[in-house]
Computed example of a mutant assay.
Amino acid sequence: MQLSNHDRIGQSLTLLSQALSPYVEQKMREFDDNKWFDKEKKRISNKNNSNHSNEEIIQDLSVLLNVINQRWDKVFKQYLSPERGLVNELIKVRNKWAHNNRFLAEDAFRDLDSIHRLLVKIGAEQEKVVYDHKQIVLQRVFQKQSNFSQAQMSQADEQIREQLKELLDIIPFQDARLLLRALTHRSYMFENPTKTQGDNEQLEFLGDSVLQFLAGDYVYEKYFGEQEGQLTQKREKIVSNEALAILAQDFNLGKWIKLGRGEELTGGRTNPTLLSNTLEAVIGAYYKDSGIDAVWEWLKPMLEQLETIKIEPNCSQVLNDAKNTFQHWAKTNHQQDPEYIVIQESGSDHDKVFGVEVRVKGRVYGYGKATKKKEAEKQAANVALQKLGLI
């Protein structure tokens, strides 16, 4: 049968009295106070109007702790300093236990720790048993805290699941909180800092990498044997902003995005760039939630669908091609990939603008500026191609 906290405190107090009895007697005799025991016996008899045996008195924890407390300055200070507070605290613990008061796990751990510290201070071997009691109670404290946290998390998860039920039917997240974060635009986070656990930009970065990998694998398997340039073009069509925006619109992703007031008023829910970025964040979150196989199972039908959709080229597509074209030029002429260097950041945290230079072997070929690093890089590549007369 598992011991209660009250039982563990009682056993530990008994061990403390067993250790303190010879210790107190020895220190008092060294001080040449052989009458201390008679004084305590008389005090107890007067207080309780009853007789106690010598053995009962010398084993009484209340007596031992009071002797230490009353003769602290003359006898025990030199041995136990600075632990006088422990002595006073343990007198209260002993009284609480004697009155059968309840010991919650947190209180029991603190009281056992006090008993253990005094046993260690006097060099008593009983400290090992009390230490074990303390560790068991500490596990209960951790379990209690864990259960409370899990209950809170479970309640929060249920609320989110209720809000996002339609979307979760399409993307079966195990942890709905990850999906909520993927839907949280930075504008919403800055306007509602206490209602979020962060925005979706890191998940967007992760999702972009996952999507690039899966799209690359898809075109490699489907068009095995084709040239690298052709495979790259097919992959870039699949992962373009226009393609991702179409996918996002197919399952009404804009309806679920958490936006700040400014983005809401300027049509953020239908903005193709915002939709594609959010979809990337959802992909990153789903990867963290369920792994690469689950993402692939969900995305593959959509990748096949994208190949049948005619996507009209726009500025974004031109810029995508610009990066690929400039990379090909750099590798052909200098056997080196271009480097994109952020040389300027301006604006507030939730509205940054990035200035990016593209360099090959240390030489600057172009400069771009945009609210996202990737867009600034594309602009820089486009400028580089214009300077080279390639477009």
Rank of each mutant, 00 (worst) to 15 (best):
N5W: 02
H6A: 09
H6W: 06
R8D: 03
G10I: 04
L13E: 05
T14C: 08
L15I: 03
V24S: 02
Q26L: 09
Q26Y: 14
M28A: 00
K35N: 15
K39E: 14
E40V: 08
K41S: 06
R43T: 13
N46R: 13
K47R: 14
N54F: 05
E55Y: 06
E55C: 02
I58E: 15
I58N: 09
L65S: 00
I68Y: 01
G85Y: 13
N88K: 12
V93C: 08
R102G: 05
A105Y: 08
E106T: 12
A108G: 05
F109E: 14
F109A: 06
I115P: 02
V120F: 12
G123C: 01
E125N: 07
Y131C: 07
H133A: 13
Q135T: 15
Q139E: 13
R140E: 09
V141Q: 11
S146R: 12
S149A: 15
A151Q: 15
Q159H: 08
Q159G: 09
R161M: 11
E162M: 07
K165H: 11
I170M: 04
I170N: 07
L178T: 10
L183W: 15
D199R: 05
E204R: 07
L206P: 05
G207H: 07
A215V: 00
F224N: 11
S240R: 01
A243W: 07
I246C: 11
L247D: 01
G254L: 10
L265P: 05
R269Y: 11
T270C: 13
A281G: 03
V282Y: 01
G291V: 05
W296S: 12
L299R: 04
E304K: 15
E312Y: 10
E312G: 02
P313A: 05
Q317N: 07
N324S: 14
N324H: 05
F326T: 04
K331Y: 14
V353Q: 08
K361Q: 14
R363M: 13
A370Q: 08
A381Y: 04
A381P: 02
